[in-house]
């Protein structure tokens, strides 16, 4: 049967790999080009790259090796896709069908839309018509409100939208999204597990696959995400601070009796 998926998320900021905490602290952890081979070797089921840069200054801060000139995220994408033989999702700063085409033609299988999907929801439909629903991932960043509801934020967690995560996920599916990537802003970098209410509310509101993100600190947290209704479980920071994170994650899922791709 169809397997549940384990997905590393790589965060790019101004051409560098970063780790993130509560959407506000970003710590540089390396050079994405240098790490491409290692990430592509991981025994995982997909890769998601999110470009969270706020401006156009891409700088690898070094010109001491052959990396010179490798300054734009699209160039990073090209380098990634040359040796990435698993599904690759690319997100960040996508505002038009042309932006999607620029990424898909460079090797992305899917693109994720976040802020722009809320500003211009028609973009989801336009993209789905050209590239298919399966290529449209709508990414939702949500914060828990005191009343227990999860509110969607855009612009890197800075702007509240008034939408609940479940309502916006349902609307995104109606408009042509093929998958939802749901991330808890509160749990980002916290390491104390997914916001399971958030995941289950979004999974219940939709019929498309849901990818859970935000909060994984131990491999067992993946199991909770799947049990809350996610079809795929993702994490970002964990991958940079634990050795053999691919095997560890898969082992925890398999041990819990979840059907995964054996590696």
């Amino acid at each position: 049967m169809l397997k549940k998926r384990l997905i590393p998320v790589l965060l790019l900021q101004n051409g560098l790999l970063v780790r993130s905490e509560a959407f506000s602290i970003h710590q540089i952890i390396g050079d994405p080009i240098h790490e491409v081979g290692r990430f592509n070797e991981w025994s995982v089921d997909e890769l998601i790259y999110l470009d969270i840069s706020r401006d156009d200054s891409y700088d690898l801060r070094r010109d001491d090796k052959k990396l010179r000139g490798l300054t734009s995220p699209l160039t990073i994408l090209e380098a990634v896709s040359r040796t990435c033989f698993m599904p690759l999702t690319w997100g960040g700063r996508i505002r038009s069908v042309d932006d999607m085409r620029a990424r898909i033609s460079r090797g992305a299988d899917k693109v994720t839309l976040n802020s722009e999907a809320l500003r211009n929801p028609e973009l989801i439909t336009e993209g789905a018509k050209v590239f298919g629903n399966q290529a449209m991932v709508v990414s939702i960043d949500a914060r828990r409100r005191p009343d227990g509801q999860h509110e969607v934020y855009i612009a890197g967690g800075n702007t509240a939208t008034g939408w609940t995560a479940a309502d916006w996920a349902r609307e995104a599916e109606r408009r042509g999204a093929g998958e939802i990537l749901v991330q808890s802003i509160d749990r980002d970098g916290a390491g104390d597990g997914y916001d399971l209410d958030l995941i289950s509310s979004v999974a219940a509101a939709t019929t498309i696959p849901v990818i859970a993100l935000g909060g994984v600190g131990r491999y067992e947290h993946y199991v909770d995400g799947i049990r809350a209704g996610a079809s795929a479980v993702a994490a970002a920071n964990l991958w940079h601070f634990k050795e053999l994170s691919d095997r560890g994650g898969k082992r925890a899922l398999a041990k819990a009796g979840i059907d995964i791709r054996k590696v």
Binding site: K3, Q134, T207, S231
Partner: peptide, 9 residues
């Protein structure tokens, strides 16, 4: 079971 059939099988 949802269609499209997407993922590892």
């Amino acid at each position: 079971l949802r269609v499209p059939h997407i993922g590892w099988n």
